[in-house]
Amino acid sequence: MDHQHWKNRGVFILAAVGSAVGLGNVWRFPYIAYSNGGGAFLIPYFVALFVAGVPLLILEFSLGRMVQKGAPQAMEYIKKEFKWLGWFAILIGSTIVVYYAVIMSWCFGYLIYSFTLKWGANPETFFYGKYLGLLPFEKAGHFGGVQIPILIGLAVTWIWIFLSIFKGVDSVGKVVLVTVPLPVLILVILIIRGVTLPGALDGLNYFLSPNFKALLNPDVWIAAFSQVFFSMSIGFGIMIAYASYLPDGSDINNNALLAGLLDALIAFMGGLAVFSVLGYLAYTKGVAVPEVVTSGPGLAFITYPTILSLLPFWAQFFSVLFFIMLLTLGIDSAFSLVEAFVAGVEDYIKIKRETFIAIVCFVAFILGIPFATRGGLYYLDVIDHYLTSFGLIFVGLLESILVGWVLGSNQVREFANLTSDFKIGKWWDISIKFIIPIILGAMLIINFVNSINKVYGGYPLWLNIVAGPVWIAILLTISLYLSYKLRKGV
C-alpha cells in the first residue's frame, strides 16, 4: 500500500489539533483550573505545557516521521522487544473510542432535542431518568435494556467516523477543514453570549481569580501535568500515526508548539464560555457560583441545558450551536483514535483499506452497545478511570524512557532540529529523560496507592477488578500476542 501524505502543513496541524482538542477542553479543563487555584493554575499549567506537553508532542511527531509507520512499528524501531508497547497504546485508544463514540451519540441526541429544548424544566431527571434510563446505583454492573435513541446515535457516529477516515489522510484532510475551525467559531459566539449575560463577570472571577497559595500544593502541579498529558492525545499512538503521513523535510518542533498552544488556547476559551454562563446561572438562581459548578457529562448534559433554557432569547439557536460544537470537538478525537489503529495494522491486512475500516467501525459499533444500555454509564466511568489513570500513563512513561535512554534523546533531538523552523536545546533531553518519567512515575504511584486505599467510585469491587486490572491485562496479552504473531518489521 502506498504511503499517503498530508496535502499541506496546515492540514496536518489542523488534524493534530483536532485530535488533541476534545470534549475535555470544554468540560474538564475549566473545572480543574477552578478547583486548583483558579487563575493561579495557569502557571503550573503553562509550565507543564512547555516542559512536558510540547516535548512529548515533539517526541511522537519525531517517531512518526522517522519510521513513517504506526506506533507498533515505531516501538519496534526503538527496540524490537518493545513492539508490544505500540500495540498496547493503540488498543487502549481503541477501547476508549468504543465508549467515546457513545458520548458522541448523546451529543447527537441532544442536538435533536435542542430544537424543542426537550429536557424541559428538569434536565437532570431528563438526562439520567429518561435519556440514559440509568439503573439505580446499587445495580451498577447490570446492563438493563438497550436505549434505542442512544443506539441510533451510536450508529450515526460510526458512519460519520467511517466517512471521515475511509480514504485516509485525503478524507481526514477535508473533514478537519470544517470540524476544527467550526467549534472554535462557535466557542467565540458562546463566549460573547456568555459575557453579555448578567452575573457573567462573577462566574469568570471564580475561574480566573488567582489563589497563589495553591501553587505550594503538589496536588495542583500533578493536576496541571495530568491535564496537559490527557489533553494532548499523547500515548495513543495517534500523533505517531499522523506524523507518519508528513513528507520528508517537514517541520517537527514548531508544529508541536503550535498544536500544544492551540489546544491550550481552546481549553482556555472553553473556560471563559463555561464560567460566564455558570455566573449567569448562579445569578438567576440567587446562589453563589460554587453551588452551580460542575464538570464532565453533568456540565454538558445537565447544567448547560439548564442555562440554555434560561437564556432570554434564541435559546434553541444557542442550544443547537452548543451541541454542534461538542460534536465537532469530539469527532476529530474519535476518528484519530481509529486512524491510529488502522495505521498500526495496515501493513498486515490483505483487503482494501475501505473494506477494512468498514469492518473496524462495525465491530466497534457492536462493542459499544453495552455502553448504550441502562447500566452503560457505570461501565464507561470505571473503564475510563483505569485506562487513563494507569494504561495511558504507563505508555507515556515507557515511551519517554525508551526514547530518552534506549534510542537516545540526543539522536531524536538532532533529527527533529534538522528540518524544524527552530531548534530545541538540551533542555528537551532533560525533559524526556528525567522530568517526564519522574512526573508520570509519580502519577502512576499516586493513582495506584489511591486505588488500593479506596475502591473507585464506590462501585462493587468485582466491577473495579473486571473493568480495571483484568481489562488492562487482556489488552497487554493481546499486545504481546500481536507483537509475537505479526513480526513483519519496518
Binding site: G39, A40, L42, N205, S209, L258, L262, F268
Partner: peptide, 30 residues
C-alpha cells in the same frame, strides 16, 4: 472581576494567542 482575575486573563491571552501567532509567523516567514 478582581484585578488578579483581569491580570490572569491578559497573561493567558498574551501567552496563548501571542505564542500561537508567533509560531504561525515562524512557519510562514520562509
Amino acid at each position: 472581576m478582581s484585578a488578579g482575575a483581569w491580570i490572569m486573563l491578559i497573561f493567558a491571552t498574551v501567552i496563548l494567542l501571542g505564542g500561537s501567532l508567533f509560531s504561525i509567523y515562524l512557519a510562514i516567514r520562509k
